[in-house]
């Protein structure tokens, strides 16, 4: 164990090594590690944000689907109601039309009967007059006996 100039040489070597490390080794390595740490942190934050956005989107989608479903069922219900209404309306209309037609037919019939009756009456009166004329041998003057004939016709 004898101290000698080696100690100085060793100090110089040490100094040079520290300088080289300071210059070429330490900064790039530490910088790379720091950068990577930041990148990882950024990546994690981005993933977090993405997850959040995804969650929000899925909530929104659910809401939209629920609304659409509600709307659809409402529309269907409305359509059902409307169709029932239309059927009812059609039925009522048809019934009314039928009644109206029936009424018309009845009125027509009554009119016809009345007219037939009137004609018949007229004819009977004329026949009667003719018959009477023939029986009496002379022509009954229709004009002269108009009043009589009319009364007759009415009584028939």
């Amino acid at each position: 164990m004898n101290l000698n100039a080696t100690i100085l040489g060793q100090m110089v070597s040490f100094a040079i090594l520290v300088w080289l490390t300071l210059k070429f080794v330490w900064p790039p390595l530490v910088e790379a590690m720091r950068e990577r740490r930041e990148k990882i942190a950024e990546g994690l934050a981005a993933a977090e944000k993405g997850n959040k956005a995804l969650e929000e989107a899925s909530t929104e989608t659910e809401r939209l689907i629920r609304e659409a479903r509600e709307q659809a069922s409402e529309i269907i219900a409305q359509a059902n109601r409307r169709s029932t209404e239309m059927v009812e309306e059609a039925k009522t209309e048809a019934r009314r039309e039928g009644e109206r037609l029936l009424e018309n037919a009845r009125a027509q019939m009554e009119q016809d009967v009345a007219r037939a009756r009137a004609e018949l009456r007229q004819e009977v009166a004329e026949l009667t007059v003719m018959g009477a004329g023939q029986i009496l041998g002379r022509e009954v003057d229709a004009k002269a006996h108009g009043e009589l004939l009319d009364r007759l016709a009415k009584e028939l």
Partner: peptide, 10 residues
């Protein structure tokens, strides 16, 4: 000892 002392003196 010279080597360790050299670094230690550094």
């Amino acid at each position: 000892i010279n080597a360790t002392a050299g670094v230690a003196l550094g």
